[in-house]
Design a protein around this nucleic acid. Structure first.
Lengths: 251, 251
DNA sequence: TCTACGGCCTCACGCGGCGTGAGGGTCAAG
DNA sequence: CTTGACCCTCACGCCGCGTGAGGCCGTAGA
């Protein structure tokens, strides 16, 4: 008329330890005990266990399951809808990451076939020192920037402004399209932004770029420029820069 | 020339505790310490951190990341491909679960609108007792089965066999199509199997059905019948029955 | 009747990736 | 000289169990 832990465990394909655990936390107490203290489970217990496993499968936490089962009048619809949203998010995220891996793999291959001597450059001490200075004290970058910009003509400034505006517009459009900062499109725009800086102002390593991104949200003078174009744009750019730098560094 | 934990933490959008942890486990040691023992991070540290966060984002475990970064010649392609497979699996699973939630919601609604008196039936003590007996001792079910089958004509037997074969064929086809046991299609077939038993032999509660599923894999006489039709079919049926019972019980 | 042997019991630590205090030093500003 | 915002090092907590250790129960064979 009743089963022991081991039997129930093999029936439901869970470990004995799991049943012990569920007993401990009160999620599934055996209906009885034998004289020797053995746990005895009834059919009702099996049914409850199946309910537990069903919700566990859906990713509910054990205490949530306990609450769901405690009150049969509990709004299952509501609960399931919430869990659905969570699962959709998880699926989307996993898909996005697969995408990220794919792009990383592609970048790896291209990098391999196109410029194998990069391996050397990565260890160029001079370059490294340069980058370090540039990021840890903005002064060096600032000096370089002034050296360059002092020779720009009005025409140069206009072209620079046009380019800049284009990038900002594309970023805003990406946001409107619901693109996330870790998306390829956003990262590519961040890279475009970095190249823009390199071209017009000063050498800008990805590390330095990250620092700048921070400044864009932290310094209201910068933030205003972006957020005026579109709410939250400065934060979006910062995140995209981070993602882009992370990708670049990991290769 | 160097930052403190707090600064690096806010730069990289991680907690100070996380950096402490990475220091503890040796994943990211600060390049230096101040006189007072403060952690001091260089730009190189930031870059390494970004590498760490990149791989963490992809779902690598911290010790795996350590191994990847330890050896620059590490086969990143291979590693990324493996991770990709893992992520694809995760995405598929999440999608399947969303599907399961949807079907559960649908079943909930239909159940609500079509037969509200089921709530009563669920608490019918007579029925419950019957089910309990049927499952915990197969004898009762066996007796009922014999009572019924003793009156079957040759024609009845043939129709029963045809129905049975059809279900088995559909199950095999589902397997061929790569359907998983927790998929709706598999669960529906399991339910069909259960109804088949109810119709031709004896009342078969979902709990009892689970018990039978166990027997199908455990008892070689039964397993052979299914596995002869298609390798692994008995195990597939068992899993589908489990899933179907779990779904039914959770509603 | 003794002895295996398998199943059951109760602790209790371990894992992964940190969160979250407690209790105390350090450092620049007022 | 004090405040307050940093920083430090323990060290326990979380979640869902896995994995022993050390010992009792129950049945079957020698």
């Amino acid at each position: 008329m009743a089963t022991t832990v081991g039997e129930l465990a093999s029936l439901a394909r869970v470990s004995v330890r799991t049943l012990h655990h569920y007993d401990e936390i009160g999620l599934l107490r055996p209906s009885g005990r034998s004289g020797a203290g053995y746990r005895l489970y009834t059919e009702g217990d099996l049914q409850r266990l199946q309910q537990v496993l069903f919700f566990r499968e859906l990713g509910f936490k054990l205490d949530e399951i306990a609450r769901i089962l405690a009150d049969p009048g509990f709004d299952r619809r509501q609960t399931l809808l919430a869990q659905r949203a969570l699962l959709v998010e998880r699926a989307d995220r996993a898909r996005a990451l697969v995408d990220l891996v794919d792009r990383t793999l592609k970048a790896l291959e291209e990098g391999d076939t196109m410029n194998p001597e990069d391996t050397f450059e990565g260890f160029d001490p001079a370059k490294y020192e340069d980058e370090a200075k540039a990021w840890w004290g903005t002064t060096e970058a600032y000096a370089e920037s002034r050296r360059r910009t002092s020779r720009y003509t009005k025409d140069d400034w206009k072209r620079m402004a046009d380019e800049s505006k284009a990038t900002v517009d594309e970023l805003a459009q990406a946001m409107d399209d619901g693109v996330t900062p870790t998306d390829a499109r956003a990262m590519d725009l961040a890279e475009q932004h970095r190249l823009h800086l390199e071209h017009w102002f000063y050498p800008c390593s990805s590390a330095m770029h990250v620092g700048l991104g921070e400044m864009y949200v932290a310094d209201p003078r910068f933030a205003a420029v972006y957020d005026q174009r579109r709410a939250g744009l400065s934060e979006f750019l910062r995140a995209a820069i981070q993602a882009n730098a992370a990708r670049a560094n990991a290769l």
